[in-house]
């Protein structure tokens, strides 16, 4: 048991280091782009007719503390995040980030997790069956759908579906909520409305994720199926799905569980583009905005921090799951 605690402590420490490093990288990269957030904010104002001078920009930078060295700003930000749980104000939106992200990050994470679960619910059984099946037609059509999912960029798929829906149903399928629920408090009705819209990003993100997972499961199964212990089990009279699930599948699924965190990250990476096109007002779209358009270090930092934290947490959970599933790992961990 002490080894397990040591394991948890080590993982927690490493997670912390990862979080710090990631936020430092985000701040540093954003520092290299010309034009501070103060300038971007005032540039918006200027397009609205405000006459802006360089002195105005300097004053705004002072007000936002952007005239301080960036290491100092990063240090202060990290301190606030770790000791007070506060991400500060978004420079471009002039809002408290905690309030801003309260719903949005959970919505994003929910969409990503739903896409992840959807993809594995399809990929695991189908992949296992496909690996053991000799049906050429089924295998080839499965391969076709998978490759389509891998090859078709998500944004293109989103645009195709939107265009199709606009032309045939007169609804562009954009947004997370209908107008009547947009500003309303959460309720079952609002949740239902959310689901009636959220299926599209989940489907789009889920398709390519499914395709990817399917290929992985199938390849791993094919590796395992030919191994001697499977033949031995078959020789002992274990047959059919019982054989598949108890022997090769158990070994094939280890690496799959290990890659859950990686998959979540991959899905989240694809979310901003899809979200932007579907005008989903969640954290992925905000991340894109804050990174690419407004150079809003606090906001981008906060979203990436939360995402990294989610992935680290998921990896931690999958490690435990793996320990439960695989005795070799369990013994390695618990002694």
């Amino acid at each position: 048991m002490s080894q397990f605690i040591q394991f948890v402590m080590t993982r927690a420490f490493l997670a912390l280091v990862t979080l710090l490093t990631v936020s430092l990288i985000v701040f540093t990269l954003m520092e290299l782009v010309p034009g501070t957030c103060a300038e971007r904010y005032l540039a918006f104002k200027n397009t609205q007719g405000s006459q802006i001078t360089i002195a105005d920009i300097a004053a705004e930078e002072r007000r936002l503390g952007l005239d301080r060295p960036f290491i100092e700003r990063w240090g202060k930000w990290v301190g606030n995040v770790f000791f007070r749980g506060e991400f500060g104000d978004s420079c471009i939106l002039r809002l408290d980030i905690n309030q801003l992200l309260a719903d949005k990050f959970w919505i994003s994470l929910g969409i990503c997790m739903a896409a992840l679960i959807l993809s594995y619910m399809i990929a695991v059984p189908v992949g296992i069956v496909a690996a053991s099946s000799n049906n050429a037609v089924a295998n080839n059509s499965l391969r076709f759908v998978s490759y389509l999912g891998l090859a078709l960029p998500n944004f293109l798929l989103a645009l195709i579906i939107m265009l199709f829906s606009t032309v045939f149903f007169g609804d562009s399928l954009t947004g997370l909520f209908s107008k009547e629920y947009r500003d309303a408090a959460w309720s079952w009705a609002k949740f239902g409305d959310f689901l009636s819209r959220a299926w599209l990003p989940i489907f789009i993100l889920g398709w390519s994720a499914t395709a990817f997972a399917l290929q992985t499961v199938r390849a791993l199964m094919l590796d395992e199926i030919g191994k001697l212990y499977v033949t031995a089990a078959a020789a002992r009279g274990v047959t059919g799905s019982r054989l598949l699930w108890r022997y090769p599948a158990r070994h094939a699924l280890g690496p799959v569980i290990n890659s859950l965190g990686f998959d979540l990250n991959r899905i989240f990476n694809e979310l901003p583009i899809v979200a932007l096109i579907l005008t989903l007002t969640e954290a992925g779209a905000l991340l894109f905005e804050s990174l690419a358009r407004s150079n809003d270090q606090q906001l981008a930092g906060a979203i990436i921090f939360l995402l990294t934290a989610s992935i680290v947490l998921l990896n931690f959970v999958t490690d435990i799951m793996l320990a439960l599933l695989d005795p070799r790992v369990r013994r390695g961990m618990m002694g």
Partner: peptide
């Protein structure tokens, strides 16, 4: 009056074509 934010020009165009 109801104002919707959509920060992508192509999406705004689609919505306009759609009479939204």
């Amino acid at each position: 009056m109801d104002e919707l934010f959509a920060n992508d020009q192509e999406v705004r165009l689609l919505k306009l074509v759609n009479g939204e």
